[in-house]
Design a protein around this nucleic acid. Structure first.
Length: 833
RNA sequence: GCGAGGGUGGCGGAAUCGGUAGACGCGUCAGACUUAGAAUCUGGUACUUCCAAGUGUAGGGGUUCAAAUCCCCUCCCUCGCACCA
């Protein structure tokens, strides 16, 4: 009987399902482990990136289950989003139908891979029983004051026909379609994630120690905390003040201009005060800036453009009038949208001033300067620390001290106020799309924008729609859905037709997995108290500043409103970010046409082979080069395992359970083989559990297989040992390639499923070596290798090596300076002459 | 520019504490089996070299009995951030 992987795999998948092997329940008597993978978008079919992600999770899950943990391992679908709308147009179907078809198909694909999910817990975010809780949670946030509407310049992607959150703008382009985003002034829904900015930052250090350093740094930068002060300039002509934030209050004496973002609200007031020709010029400038793309506006070294207004503001300390400019490099959405311009100590301000001939006044001198800085001749801003000058009573202070003392003084004089600013912005949550969670609000001409009452949830998304034109939500053309009585006054009102960012759905799906059927709340705290937090999360690095920030915010919110325990502030204890799957030097992607379809490769080699290859070819974090030859290698290995068991089946069956302890083995070959078996257990366990280095774990199984083939049994103990070796091999192989392991295990006459057989524990005595190879070095160069009994002390080692013929020859006639002996490892003889 | 992580055979990658560099696999070469092929098996495979020996972990320097590993300098690659005041 040859290795018929198709038959074997379908057989065991059916048995596991029938026997409900992977269904779990919360059980406080058992130690839990929650293994989570980023759930896929149901795009139509699994890709190799999914296969890699889920093969890691399943291997880990199967391993931990065998180690006796109660493991929650669920799967679901992140089912709302744009592609469904595009597909609906292309294939003349409905987003709802297309999505559900894909969900069902991809579920069969996942099952075909043999992943051990508890399928009863499948969650689909487009299912009303899920998204109703999106709406409910949104209302809870609203009640907490975390939801607000704001008219603001927002990121707009034209092809997607919708706004984007800051996190979804990558290098000035849309994260999904790479089109440069433009700014549009719109009134939009926001969630105040900035309320948690400090905690999101603090917890990175205190709680996210199980995350890759890379992701922690990315989040730290994204949140971007800076400490400084806010100061204001009186603008008499307008009867108001301009506020600005600075981290360098020590440079106030160097202010030579004030600059506002072209979108600054004061611009309106200025226009009103200006004669029409001047006003027109200013409007033109503002329009020009608005037309610049985000990339042009925000590129370092990009051309700085300004417009000098006829207004001035009073210097907060000296009272001198300072000219007010509009400048394209001032960002409206950071700080106050206005800055104090200090060209001598800020490179951007410097470039601006040189271009427009504004004065440059140094107020800091480098500590060991030969020639002091001169505002007229300096060629670049001096941004380092130095010694204050031209700063009145603060002259002579080093920068850090100057910052502290000047802010202290400024605060005491009422000139400034300490302030912390974050780069993180509030989360723009609304989307002008159809296929998403309807935002549960109603626009009433009398009562304004009012929430739908909770007992009216869910606000169902109509499923029977025709999407005709990307860019206009069909909801807008459905009066029967749109028109609704106002929840407050009962009068005629209209539903909010915008939907939620799909990242809202993915911010709490892992809690829903804990109680997928909860009907009275998003999840049952009884379940989440047991299962949460997630012990191991696995997914792509691309979510470092998207999903992984939103989900953290949600957890803090859920904890605040008491759905999660007070102390549970972080959802993911350990994070593994897997590398990409590469083929022909580039990431596998449809657009490059270099994809390999999992289904095809599974048909050709089997799921066990694909899983094994994908875990063996590269360490988890690295990119993985797809190689069909590598897949064949993995297949060859599994066939070798199969053949070994099959060819020796009758004999192996005779020795079930007859393990011989190390203590009763005397023949060196037996002792070596026994040691190989147990050191394999030891190393594989450590590689998976501690090192998360699955490729080397597999290498060790290959070594054990090679050892099984070269071990030639002759006497009874040999045969017993061989059976033990096979048992260990199959047991350790089963998390990686579970079907073949299960089949061979059954062929050996076992009744119990290997999937639930405990993971082997190495026999301590079988790990210790009888003999070790001692390297004999002369002056650090290897001259001989001696096989010596294990456990020799330094003196014994030294004697053994010094008496070795080869060593003797090498050191003959030379003066011995020193001999270093490292037990169990080496002896180095240092000689002179 | 700033920040992080890297650079080891033809390739993917091994190498717990500083202690045999190249585990395991791919590829490749030679042989066995075969009418032939496929499959399988055996052996070789860092470089120079007949051997002996020497040289080798991006390059240069240092610490050490001993360095892929620690320190300094240089080069290169990948990733992230990038007018954040």
């Amino acid at each position: 009987m040859s290795y018929d992987f198709q038959a074997v795999e379908t057989k065991w998948q059916k048995i596991w399902e029938e026997r409900r092997c992977f269904e779990v329940e919360a059980d406080p008597a058992k130690l839990k482990f929650y293994c989570l993978e980023m759930f896929p978008y149901p795009s139509g079919a699994l890709h190799m990136g999914h296969v890699r992600n889920y093969s890691m999770g399943d291997m880990l899950t199967r391993f931990l289950r065998k180690k006796g943990l109660n493991v929650l391992y669920p799967m679901g679908f992140d089912a709302f989003g744009m592609p469904a709308e595009n597909a609906a147009i292309k294939y003349k179907t409905k987003p709802h139908e297309w999505t559900w078809q894909n969900i069902e198909y991809m579920t069969t694909q996942l099952k075909r891979m043999g992943y051990s999910y508890d399928w009863r817990r499948r969650v689909e975010s487009c299912n009303p029983n899920y998204y109703r809780w999106n709406q409910w949670l949104f209302l809870q946030m609203y009640k907490k004051g975390l939801v607000y509407r704001k008219y603001a310049p927002v990121n707009w992607c034209e092809p997607c026909g919708t706004v984007l959150a800051n996190e979804q703008v990558v290098n000035g382009t849309c994260w999904r379609c790479n089109t440069p985003v433009v700014k549009k002034n719109l009134e939009q829904w926001f969630i105040k994630i900035t309320d948690c900015a400090q905690e999101l930052l603090d917890n990175i250090d205190s709680q996210l120690t199980g995350w890759p350093e890379r992701v922690r740094i990315m989040q730290r930068n994204w949140i971007g905390r800076s400490e400084g002060a806010r100061l204001s300039f009186e603008v008499d002509a307008l009867g108001c003040t301009i506020e600005a934030f600075t981290t360098r209050f020590d440079t106030v004496y160097g202010i030579t201009f004030i600059a506002l973002a072209p979108e600054h609200e004061l611009v309106k007031h200025m226009l009103e005060k200006l004669p029409s020709n001047q006003a027109q010029e200013m409007k033109d400038f503002v329009a020009k800036c608005a037309a610049q793309s985000a990339i042009e506006r925000s590129a370092v070294g990009g051309e700085k453009q300004g417009f000098k207004t006829p207004f001035t503001g009073a210097h907060p300390v000296t009272g001198k009038p300072i000219p007010i400019w509009l400048a394209n490099y001032i960002l409206m959405d950071y700080g106050t949208g206005a800055i104090m311009g200090v060209p001598a100590h800020d490179q951007r301000d410097f470039e601006f001033c040189r271009k427009y001939g504004i004065e440059v006044i140094p107020v800091i001198q480098p500590a060991e300067a030969k020639n002091p800085l001169d505002g007229a001749t300096m060629e670049a801003a001096f941004e380092d620390d130095g010694i204050s000058c031209n700063s009145g009573q603060f002259d002579g202070l080093p920068t850090q001290e100057a910052i502290r003392k000047m802010i202290d003084w400024g605060e005491s004089q009422g000139l400034c106020k300490r302030e912390v600013n974050f780069r993180l912005r509030d989360w723009l949550i609304s989307r002008q799309r159809y296929w998403g969670t309807p935002i549960p609000f109603v626009h009433c001409p009398r009562c304004g924008i009012v929430p739908v009452s909770e007992d009216q949830l869910p606000v169902l998304l109509p499923e029977d729609v025709t999407v005709t034109d990307v860019g206009r939500s069909p909801l807008l053309d459905m009066p029967e859905w749109l028109e609704t009585p106002c929840p407050v006054c009962g009068g005629k009102a209209q539903r909010e037709a915008e939907t939620m960012d799909t990242f809202f759905c993915s911010s709490w799906y892992f809690e829903r997995y804990c109680s997928p059927d909860a009907a009275a709340s998003p999840f049952d705290p009884k379940d989440t108290n047991y299962w949460m937090p997630v012990d191991q999360y696995i997914g792509g690095i691309e979510h470092a500043c998207l999903h992984l920030i939103y989900a953290r915010f949600f957890t803090m919110f859920l904890s605040d409103i008491g759905l999660l325990p007070k102390g549970m502030r972080e959802p993911f204890t350990n994070l593994l970010t897997q590398g990409m799957v590469i083929k022909d030097g580039a990431k596998m992607s449809k657009s490059l046409g270099n994809t390999v379809e999992p289904t095809e490769i599974v048909e050709k080699y089997g799921a066990d082979t694909v899983r094994l290859f994908i875990l063996f070819a590269s360490p988890p974090q690295n990119d993985l080069d797809w190689s069909e030859q590598g897949v064949e290698g993995a297949h060859r290995f599994l066939s070798r395992v199969w053949r070994f068991v099959e060819e020796n089946l009758e004999d192996l069956k005779k020795h079930a359970g007859e393990y011989v302890p190390m203590s009763s083995l005397t023949i060196p070959a037996q002792r070596d083989f026994k040691r190989k078996i147990h050191s394999t257990i030891f190393a594989v366990t450590r590689d998976i559990d501690e090192e998360k280095q699955f490729n080397t774990a597999i290498a060790r199984l290959m070594e054990l297989t090679n050892a099984l083939y070269s071990f030639r049994p002759s006497e009874p103990a040999d045969f017993k040992l061989r059976r033990e070796g096979v048992d260990v091999l199959l047991n350790c192989l089963s998390p990686f390639s579970p079907h073949i392991a299960e089949e061979l295990w059954g062929m050996l006459g076992n009744e119990t499923l290997l999937s639930i057989v405990p993971w082997p524990v190495p026999e301590q005595e079988a790990l210790a070596a009888d003999f070790v190879i001692i390297v004999a070095q002369v002056n650090g160069k290897v001259r001989a290798k001696l096989t010596l009994p294990s456990g020799l002390n330094e003196a014994e080692l030294r004697d053994a090596v010094m008496n070795d013929a080869q060593v003797k020859e090498k050191i003959a006639g030379k003066e011995i300076v020193k001999v270093i002996a490292v037990p169990e490892k080496l002896v180095n003889v240092v000689v002179k002459g």
